Measured scan of single mutants.
Amino acid sequence: MATADDFKLIRDIHSTGGRRQVFGSREQKPFEDLVDLGWLKRSSVDSRATHYQITERGTSAAL
């Protein structure tokens, strides 16, 4: 179930172009929650960072 923080984060991601790069596993937790909701997808993972991209469902949630 989505929380107020989830909606705040997806709106922030949407307003800044729909993509986010995250460093460190602790910082990934809120983004992984949005992946579980179907609002974000992991577009790539490298040794230092994970890249996320907003989905259509995420765009709808952000509006």
Rank of each mutant, 00 (worst) to 15 (best):
M1A: 12
M1Y: 13
M1L: 12
M1S: 11
M1E: 12
A2L: 04
A2E: 05
A2N: 04
A2V: 06
A2M: 05
A2G: 11
T3K: 08
T3N: 08
T3F: 05
T3Q: 06
T3G: 06
T3R: 08
A4L: 12
A4I: 11
A4S: 10
A4E: 13
A4N: 09
A4D: 12
A4H: 10
A4F: 10
A4Q: 11
D5F: 09
D5M: 11
D5Y: 08
D5I: 07
D6K: 08
D6H: 12
D6A: 11
D6G: 05
F7E: 04
F7H: 05
F7T: 04
F7D: 02
F7V: 07
F7R: 05
K8A: 13
K8V: 09
K8M: 10
K8G: 06
K8Q: 10
K8T: 09
L9M: 05
L9K: 03
I10D: 00
I10F: 02
I10K: 00
I10G: 00
I10N: 01
I10H: 00
I10M: 03
I10P: 01
I10Y: 00
I10R: 01
R11W: 12
R11M: 11
R11I: 12
D12Q: 11
D12K: 09
D12C: 12
D12R: 09
D12W: 12
I13Q: 01
I13H: 01
I13T: 01
I13L: 05
I13N: 00
I13V: 07
I13S: 00
I13W: 01
H14M: 12
H14G: 03
S15M: 13
S15A: 14
T16W: 07
T16I: 06
T16P: 00
T16N: 11
G17Q: 06
G17W: 04
G17R: 04
G17T: 04
G18E: 02
G18P: 02
G18H: 02
G18V: 02
R19D: 07
R20A: 12
R20L: 08
R20F: 08
R20S: 06
R20H: 05
R20V: 15
R20N: 03
R20G: 04
Q21H: 11
Q21Y: 13
Q21I: 15
Q21S: 15
Q21L: 15
Q21G: 07
Q21W: 15
Q21P: 06
Q21D: 11
V22Q: 03
V22Y: 03
V22A: 07
V22F: 04
F23I: 13
F23S: 13
F23Y: 11
G24Q: 08
G24V: 07
G24I: 07
S25T: 13
S25P: 12
S25R: 10
S25A: 12
S25Q: 13
S25F: 09
R26V: 15
R26K: 14
R26P: 09
R26M: 15
R26I: 14
R26F: 13
E27W: 10
E27T: 08
E27C: 15
E27K: 11
E27S: 10
E27R: 11
Q28Y: 06
Q28G: 06
K29R: 11
K29M: 07
K29W: 05
P30H: 07
P30I: 07
P30N: 06
P30C: 07
F31T: 02
F31D: 00
F31S: 01
F31L: 06
E32D: 11
E32K: 08
E32Q: 10
E32R: 07
E32T: 07
E32S: 07
D33P: 05
D33E: 08
D33L: 15
D33S: 13
D33M: 14
D33V: 15
L34I: 02
L34Y: 01
L34Q: 01
L34P: 01
L34V: 02
L34T: 00
L34R: 00
V35Y: 03
V35S: 02
V35P: 00
V35H: 03
V35A: 04
D36S: 14
D36C: 12
D36P: 03
L37F: 06
L37D: 00
L37A: 03
L37G: 02
L37H: 05
L37I: 06
L37Q: 03
G38V: 02
G38W: 03
G38Q: 05
G38T: 03
G38P: 00
W39R: 00
W39D: 00
W39P: 01
W39H: 00
L40I: 05
L40T: 02
K41D: 10
K41T: 15
K41Y: 15
K41C: 12
R42E: 04
R42I: 15
R42G: 04
R42Q: 06
R42K: 13
R42M: 08
S43F: 13
S43T: 15
S44P: 07
S44W: 15
S44M: 13
S44R: 14
S44F: 15
V45I: 11
V45C: 09
V45H: 09
V45P: 06
V45E: 08
V45Q: 12
V45A: 09
V45M: 10
V45T: 10
V45L: 07
D46M: 06
D46L: 06
D46Q: 08
D46S: 12
D46C: 10
S47Y: 09
S47Q: 11
S47F: 10
R48H: 14
R48T: 14
R48D: 14
R48W: 12
A49I: 11
A49P: 06
A49V: 13
A49N: 08
A49W: 14
A49L: 09
A49K: 07
T50M: 08
T50V: 14
T50L: 06
T50H: 07
H51R: 09
H51F: 13
Y52M: 01
Y52R: 01
Y52P: 00
Y52Q: 00
Y52D: 01
Q53Y: 11
Q53R: 08
Q53P: 00
I54P: 00
I54V: 04
I54L: 05
I54C: 03
T55M: 02
T55L: 03
T55I: 02
T55R: 01
E56F: 08
E56H: 08
E56C: 09
E56G: 07
E56T: 10
E56L: 10
E56I: 09
E56D: 12
R57I: 12
R57L: 15
R57T: 13
G58S: 00
G58E: 01
G58T: 00
T59R: 12
T59H: 07
T59E: 09
S60R: 14
S60A: 15
S60T: 13
S60F: 14
A61E: 04
A61W: 04
A61Y: 05
A61G: 02
A61L: 04
A61P: 01
A62E: 01
A62L: 04
A62V: 05
A62C: 05
L63H: 10
L63D: 04
L63P: 01
L63Y: 06
L63T: 08
